[in-house]
Simulated scan of single mutants.
Amino acid sequence: MKTFNCAIIEDSITQRKLLEQLIAKSKHLKLIHAASANAETLKEINKSKIDLLFLDIEMPDMNGFEFLSGLTIQPQVIITSHDQKYALEAFDFNVTDFLLKPYSTDRFEAAITKAIDKVKSAKKKQPESKLVVKHNLKQVELNVHAILYIEALGDYVKVVTEERNYVILSTMSAFNDRLEADKFIRIHKSYIVNLKMVERYNHEFIEIQNKKIPISRAKIVELDQLLNCLD
């Protein structure tokens, strides 16, 4: 099951613990960071890969709106506050939801459901990723998301898509470097696979459209982790 990374920015240790307990009970969320707002925390959050941020407003070193203004990433943001007066300004920042403390478990669940739906929707709206390659002496554009797998062919690689195959002059390492690391994995010295296209797998091979592709023992754990992070 897909889990979504989240962080808590809250100066009250009691409120932070309450949120941590709710997150721990959720099968959809994984907490990766919890702290009060300050410049160092902001720097850490901007380096992280979070989908969802729980953010208090009134904090001593940096308030929630200052923290929001400093974000360079775009997680779904759920404001948690004791004061309703911040709600209007919060939504000016296009936050996902506003939880007025104390809030119920049902209200918490409704907020994270809304946030998760928005994360999924945003991912679906991402434009197609194009890769320019030379095939049969011509430059062609490949839709990266349509690739099923890549197979080594000596000094060439064969890129297999649902519509056709492309034979490209390249090493596997060089081609792998052009792909998104969280979308593709080199599971064997001769194969790179699109994680989204994996239909079934065990610890010996994966299957993509009836093609059985061997898995290197060294890649089993990484493959498990990446597949568990997909929708």
Rank of each mutant, 00 (worst) to 15 (best):
E44G: 00
Y201R: 05
I206R: 07
Q84A: 15
L227R: 13
R164S: 14
L88H: 10
Q74T: 11
S190H: 05
L68Y: 00
F205W: 10
P60S: 12
L68G: 01
F54N: 07
Q84E: 13
I23E: 00
S81C: 06
I45R: 02
D51E: 15
T96L: 08
N202R: 07
K25Q: 15
Y86Q: 10
I32Q: 08
S12V: 09
P102C: 06
S81G: 13
I215S: 00
S48H: 13
L195N: 04
Q139C: 10
Y103H: 06
V77H: 05
K183Y: 08
A181R: 13
K196H: 11
L31V: 13
P214L: 15
K158Q: 10
N63W: 05
A218R: 15
E20A: 07
E109S: 12
K134M: 09
V193P: 11
I220K: 10
A218D: 02
A174F: 02
Q126R: 11
L55R: 02
N228D: 06
K138F: 05
M172L: 15
D231H: 10
T80S: 12
K27W: 03
P127W: 12
D92R: 15
D97K: 14
D182R: 10
L195C: 14
Q76W: 10
L29T: 08
E128K: 15
E89C: 04
Q126F: 07
V157Q: 08
R164A: 08
F93M: 07
L137T: 07
K211V: 13
D56K: 01
K134N: 04
A146P: 00
K138L: 14
N63S: 06
